[in-house]
Design a binder for these strands. Structure first.
Length: 592
DNA sequence: CCCCCCCC
């Protein structure tokens, strides 16, 4: 590879505001800028052979280059994209810094082996006296047609801009409050309230991006009302006068050392053109679903998949905080032919259906061909809105162990033998596992109970003959709601257990509602010994049971109580895949 | 100024 020649003298043009397209420069050094936390930023000493520029920074998305040691001394690079920004220093003149957004390495530092030319530190004061010389020696600098750079020169709305140029997110810091950023909203949270020792209030936060990076912003209290409806996902905004502070990396995974807070001074102006392609849309880095199990707990992943199953909205009351939650679970599959349960909480779970087309999505169940999935996910229009949800950065709970908090499809396969051998059910929290099992026996007696007729209450009522009293709702009604609560003995390949199966699962397995069965039983009242008959359809059916077990104490005896939380009809293709996986793990034969 | 992330 011949050594590339540098764009001699271009630093003068760049640092005085003239844009040079794709300049070729030599790196003479890199330096990590001290920062208060584990996020890094690198300053680069860069040369055009004539001038040195030490006010160049690497956009954080390029940090990997430094970490991979690709920016060694003497390396020659071509800047594919960069931007400059005026940094205001109160005691001195404004200073221009250069932020490198994208570069190509032309020659390795060792290959070049030396500093090219005898570059001198560029001094803007000198430039004023001799501007022509450098421009003449540069190989035809042309105006940079890069959109981002162009935007820097667009005359912005004076009301917020006060004549300042658009700054890249990467240049924001707590020491600089004279800036306007032009950003796209990548995501917006729900409104959340808090109530603690320090007081109460509400907030929402949103993540913004531009070409240089990303940053989180949070609005509190009155600002929530002011801005919540204004900020829309994918919208482009001009924003100024926020407070910056160090980002708390524990909760904020964006690539930025800082995060910002809206205040009374803050000005936000929506841009007319949300399609402005100078401001990037959300960038994804997809992880195949079958790799998630290998990742560290609580890792952040982007996934690209389609919905295989859509759960109902479930209302939950937290046992620790007594707070009400709404949840919906989706099963998502991707090209890796793996699936994972995706939990969607709060209003997101409710609003999901609005843009959802369950028919189209469910169609994938039958033609689960990995090649087709990709095309459908990316190109079928009705998918796009819903798919966006999965494309977003999604936090999966412990997908590996299937223990507390695991998604249903990531639940560990364990036999009843394993469960006993591992002493499961003895912890503070219940244990979850799944096994393929066949229903051997069903206890028909008391398989249906009379539940409170209020829609959200399933509590067993006190039967007062003519009326039914719910002690939870404190109401008495003349009607009740029949619900299943079935005990059945199920057997896997190692052993059998009595498990409790709640209403929805039994209705699903039986294809009949508890009310229908209740009516049948009433109609044939008096016939003894036929209690199991209504359930005969379920006998000897096999399912993949997802089970919860927890040791409970009854008087002075303890018993491991098993409850079915899901029963999926056997999909032999999938189950065989699991068995083949076990075989290859056990024997080392097969997969790599 | 939040920082909770729930449940079966």
């Amino acid at each position: 590879m011949p050594i590339s020649s540098l764009t001699t003298g271009c630093i003068q043009s760049i640092m005085t505001g003239t844009e040079v397209e794709k300049p070729v420069l030599q790196i003479l050094g890199t330096k990590k800028i001290a920062s208060g936390n584990d996020s890094e930023r690198y300053r680069i000493l860069i040369s055009d052979g004539k001038y040195l520029n030490s006010f160049a920074m690497l956009a954080t998305q390029l940090n990997h280059l430094q970490q991979e040691d690709k920016l060694k001394e003497n390396t020659i690079v071509r800047l594919e994209r960069y931007t400059t920004s005026m940094v205001n220093k109160t005691d001195k003149a404004d200073k221009r810094v250069m932020i490198i957004l994208e570069l190509t390495i032309l020659n390795d530092g060792r290959e070049v082996g030396q500093k090219i030319g005898n570059p001198q530190t560029f001094n803007p004061a000198d430039a004023a006296s001799a501007p022509a010389a450098a421009a003449a020696s540069a190989p035809k600098p042309t105006m940079n047609n890069n959109n981002y750079a162009k935007n820097n020169n667009v005359s912005m709305n004076q009301s917020i801009n006060s004549g300042h140029l658009i700054s890249p997110i990467a240049s924001l810091s707590p020491y600089n409050n004279k800036w306007v950023i032009k950003v796209r909203c990548m995501s917006k949270s729900q409104i959340r309230t808090w109530n603690n020792a320090k007081g109460e209030g509400k907030l929402f936060s949103m993540d913004f991006c531009d070409q240089s990076g990303e940053i989180r912003a949070t609005a509190f209290r009155d600002d929530v009302d002011k801005y919540y409806d204004l900020i829309k996902q994918d919208g482009v905004y001009l924003i100024s006068k926020c407070t910056l502070k160090a980002a708390n990396k524990q909760f904020n995974h964006l690539k930025n050392d800082y995060e910002m807070t809206f205040g009374s001074e803050t000005v936000i102006q929506p841009c007319e053109d949300d399609n402005d392609d100078s401001i990037p849309t959300v960038q994804y880095n997809f992880t195949p679903i079958n790799r998630i199990a290998e990742m560290e707990d609580k890792s952040m992943v982007d996934i690209c998949g389609v919905v295989k199953e859509i759960g109902e909205i479930v209302h939950i009351t937290s046992k620790t905080t007594n707070k009400e939650f709404k949840k919906r679970e989706l099963i998502v599959v991707d090209q890796s032919e793996a699936s994972i349960a995706l939990q969607i909480w709060g209003d997101d779970a409710v609003n999901l259906m609005v843009t959802f087309n369950p028919l189209l999505l469910l169609k994938e169940l039958d033609s689960a061909n990995s090649m087709e999935l990709k095309v459908l996910a990316l190109e079928l229009d009705p998918f796009i809105n819903s798919i966006q949800i999965f494309l977003s950065v999604i936090k999966f709970e412990d997908a590996r162990t299937g223990g507390a908090g695991g998604g249903s499809m990531s639940t560990e396969w364990l036999s009843f033998f394993d469960v006993r051998a591992r002493n499961l059910g003895n912890g503070d929290r219940p244990d979850y596992f799944q096994t393929k099992a066949t229903i051997q026996m069903i206890r028909g007696q008391n398989a249906i109970y009379k539940a409170c007729s209020s829609p959200d209450c399933n509590k067993k009522v006190v039967d007062e003959g003519e009326s039914f009293r719910c002690e939870k709702c404190n109401i008495t009604s003349h009607t009740y709601k029949a619900r299943f609560l079935v005990n059945m003995s199920i057997s896997d390949w190692t052993s059998n257990r009595w498990v409790t199966c709640f209403n929805d699962l039994v209705e699903q397995m039986l294809g009949k509602s508890a009310s229908e069965v209740d009516a049948e039983i009433q109609a044939s009242a008096g016939q003894e010994g036929n209690e199991n008959e209504p359930f005969s359809k379920m006998f000897f059916q096999s399912y993949v049971f997802k089970l919860r077990c927890k040791v409970e104490t009854y008087g002075d005896s303890q018993r491991n109580k098993f409850t079915a939380v899901a029963a999926t009809p056997l999909n032999y293709k999938e189950y065989n895949k699991h068995l083949i996986g076990d075989l290859s793990r056990l024997t080392g034969i097969g997969k790599n």
